[in-house]
């Protein structure tokens, strides 16, 4: 007979892991933990005051998002800023956001529009004051609200999973997005949303992200001979 097991132990452990995960996630995105920095278990246990297990679990999850790199028996470190990976992730994010707009906008509710208004206000404010991490968050929130309104859990999880790369991008801000162009671009998208014009909102989002593909083809995509050597898929 299997031993009866109470629910409390796994739940507490899960919460602990989530807390540790949250601290590390914030630390990486705000730069407290620097790109390339080695993460030693003993230092993390001392810093966060928890045991090794929740730390390892949180690190695995961060590795899955591409924020941490783990090479067994060699190192665990904050992933260095990888411009190619960031460009790829933002391109991919653009595809998801464009689709979300086309699907959601025609029947969008006023509550979601209110959230978009709020996010846009934050984008305008932080663009003016050049508060970069905050601007990244506001930009990301704007689109995540659209994605969440669609209710496709797989698509929502994928968008959220790509967010860290987009947020990291603000720390090395340069093309394809100009900071001063963002409030206007998002304003146009929101105007189309308010008209319930999904096709127009989708086209605007496609245009907003189109620079990522141009840049990828120019700077990051390998030659066909190299692709044949080590294909990505």
């Amino acid at each position: 007979m299997p031993l009866p097991v109470s629910d409390t132990a796994p739940v507490e452990r899960r919460l602990l892991r989530d807390v540790v995960y949250g601290r590390l996630y914030e630390g990486i995105l705000d730069g407290t933990l620097e790109p390339g920095e080695t993460l030693l278990d003993e230092k993390l246990t001392a810093w966060l005051g928890v045991s090794r297990t929740p730390i390892r679990e949180a690190l695995m999850k961060l590795a899955d998002l591409g924020l941490v790199e783990m090479a067994p028996n060699r190192y665990t470190r904050v992933a260095p800023i990888d411009l190619k990976a960031i460009d790829e992730a933002i391109y991919t994010t653009g595809l998801l956001h464009e689709k979300a707009a086309r699907t959601v906008v025609p029947t969008i509710d006023t509550a979601t529009i209110a959230k978009l208004d709020k996010a846009l206000k934050e984008v305008k404010k932080t663009a003016k004051t050049r508060e970069l991490p905050a601007l990244g968050n506001a930009f990301n929130d704007f689109f995540l609200e659209l994605v969440r309104a669609g209710g496709n859990e797989v698509l929502i999880a994928m968008s959220e999973g790509l967010s860290p790369q987009l947020l990291r991008y603000v720390s090395v801000w340069h093309t394809p997005f100009g900071i001063d162009d963002l409030p206007g671009a998002l304003g146009d998208i929101l105007a189309a949303v308010k008209e319930r014009d999904g096709a127009k909102a989708g086209d605007l989002i496609k245009g907003l992200y189109s620079g990522t593909l141009t840049q990828f083809l120019q700077d990051y995509r390998r030659r066909d001979v190299d692709i044949a050597q080590s294909p990505v898929f």
Partner: peptide, 19 residues
């Protein structure tokens, strides 16, 4: 496979491998 390899976007390859 043909398309994803040709575009060379490793992030999309990873997401498709997953789903």
């Amino acid at each position: 496979g043909v398309y994803v390899r040709r575009l060379d976007n490793g992030t999309i390859a990873r997401l498709l491998n997953r789903h």
